[in-house]
Amino acid sequence: MVQRGQREFLVPGLIVLIMTLIGALLTSLVIAREWERGTFEALFATPVRPVEILLSKTVPYFVMGMFGLVLAVAGSQFLFAVPLRGSLWLLVLVSSLYLLVALGMGLVISSATKSQFLASQITFLVTFLPATLLSGFIFDIRSMPWGAQIVTSIFPARYFVSSLQTLFLAGDVWPIILPNALVLAGMAALLMAMAAKATRKRID
């Protein structure tokens, strides 16, 4: 049976897995399926701009991801009795940034592969697996080998897990949350720019 201290440490990390599944995996599969079915060819024949296509594919999954966040936070409070010591608005802000990162990764992967099978495999390897093993969710990053600690710095889940655990267990600790949020914001901007370029209005 999971003890209270372990529960308070692990439950916030589960939010990362939920957001990763909704943001990256589902998005990559749906967009890749549209590439396979030729739906994008019909979009390219319209006056719709690539940015508008990107928004139409991003907004529904962003809303779905935020709804998943609400359910996860409610479950942590009422089912597992894990306290939220930080600000709710700050939790929403950081989660929104990570969700944009996950959506960007899903869009980039699906646009690059244009195959549901490849998209699912690559997304699992670069998002879900690192979110489980290399984010600090299960294994403390400080206990990992030096080389592994460096590798974790390239995965956005590391910064989201750190922020969540800080918000739930300690509160609004800005020296931890602010750098993590800035990294996530930078990753989100980069990935969305890459997704917009990959979803440009032309057929390769």
Rank of each mutant, 00 (worst) to 15 (best):
R200T: 06
A170K: 14
L107Y: 00
P12C: 11
A195K: 00
V70D: 11
L118K: 10
G68S: 09
L54R: 00
I31Y: 02
A170C: 08
G186F: 10
L79V: 12
L169R: 14
L84E: 10
A189P: 02
I53T: 13
S143I: 09
R33Y: 04
L125M: 14
I176H: 09
W35V: 06
F168T: 11
T127V: 05
G75M: 06
V101E: 07
I15W: 00
I122V: 15
E52W: 03
A157I: 02
F137L: 15
A157P: 01
I122A: 14
A45S: 15
M66N: 07
W174P: 04
T166S: 05
T58M: 00
L191W: 01
V48P: 01
L25N: 01
L190Q: 02
L97H: 02
E36I: 04
G23S: 13
D140Y: 06
T132K: 06
L97V: 03
E52R: 10
A32V: 08
Q149F: 03
L184Q: 07
S111E: 01
L97P: 01
V48E: 06
W146P: 02
R4W: 12
R202A: 10
V2F: 15
I154A: 14
M194E: 12
P12A: 05
V183G: 11
V101H: 03
D172W: 04
V151K: 01
R37A: 14
G186T: 05
L184V: 08
Q77K: 14
R49F: 02
I154E: 04
L133C: 08
F155D: 00
L17M: 14
V108T: 01
S87K: 06
F9M: 12
L21D: 07
I176P: 03
I154G: 11
V151T: 03
A24N: 07
S28M: 09
S120R: 02
A170Y: 13
G86F: 05
F139K: 00
S143A: 15
D204T: 11
E34N: 14
A112W: 00
M187F: 11
V70W: 12
V51H: 12
L164Y: 05
A196V: 00
A196E: 07
E8H: 12
M105K: 06
Q6T: 13
V82N: 07
L29W: 02
M192S: 08
L184I: 03
T166G: 07
V73F: 04
L118I: 05
L182M: 12
V101M: 09
F128N: 08
T46G: 09
F155V: 09
L43E: 13
S162Q: 15
A185Y: 05
